[in-house]
Amino acid sequence: MLIAATLAIFVAMILAIIRGVIGPTLYDRILAVNMFGTKTVLLISLLGFVMGRPEFLDIAIVYALINFISVIGVLRYSDTNQFKHSPNDNESLKKEP
């Protein structure tokens, strides 16, 4: 059961990466990265139990905190108006290449 749960989390992480790559707006990408981080915490704790080494949980706690700080840190820039979203963003990105 532990291995099945690990595989399910792994598939969920792959789907989150797909959303992060195709995501139309910037916020979709940040959301996908945030979900990837929380799934990583779960994956680390599950792998600790699969390998019989629950010390991995310390790393999981530290990873949860780092993930939180990285998302908040990126979004602090949104106060400075550098992220101003305009509806034409996606079209201009598509035309460029």
Binding site: A8, V11, A12, M13, L15, A16, R19, L31, A32, M35
Partner: peptide
């Protein structure tokens, strides 16, 4: 639940 959440994200 995690798998359906990821499906919903897509």
């Amino acid at each position: 639940l995690c798998f359906s959440g990821a499906i919903g994200l897509l």
